[in-house]
Amino acid sequence: MINTVAITNSKLNQYRLRVRYRKDGRLAHLGHLEVINTINRSVRRSQLPFAVGNGFARRMRLQFSQALPVGAASLGEYFDLFLTEEMDPKAALERLAASSPTLLAPMAAGYVPYGLPALEAWLTRSTWSVNVIDETSVEALSQGIDAVRARGSLTYLRGEKEKHVDLGRTLVSCEVRPSGNGFLLDCRSTEEGSLRPAILIGAAAREEGLAMPALSVCRVAQWHEDEDGSLVEPM
């Protein structure tokens, strides 16, 4: 549900505009910092009345959802832009779309309450589509995933650092896609960390003695998980 009426923070007189955008095609290979810089510049080009922070560096007030891995596409990424004037979100969306690269196009915009927690911490659930694009057997990988899940946790190297992921908490469900060519993962991010789909598939492949398959990864949607476990739409 898109909000069309802004709720301002009366002290700062600022309005929090939430924007859903996609990250697609070859731009899936952008890193998180590159996406942040690009959207920052898109906002400047759009000439929207963005707010500037009061810190030393005087940066635009802009918040992002959790980083996507390099190479992963998304149909549901979000940023919150703080505006100094209330303007029609449709008009804001049009201006943003006209100033953004097509493969990072904003798709929806609406106001959210000013005082919501930061996006990165608030969006805790995500659905991922993982397609295997080489000859690796999805069935074998599925067996590998079951074996990895049965152990309850996963340890892997990120750079030179050893990382641990609690699969019981971070992997809510994993199903083979109806087409049979990959998986649908439902993941939860916790304070300790979150699960990257490619890490899970890599571990499953090792479990089965297979090479890391070529994957096409896409974050399909994100939600906020309430205390009672219900999912809240970001917009």
Binding site: R26, H29, L30, R41, T102
Partner: peptide, 10 residues
């Protein structure tokens, strides 16, 4: 740094 090879910049 795959973004070195992407093109499609604004």
């Amino acid at each position: 740094k795959p973004s070195r090879y992407l093109d499609h910049e604004w």
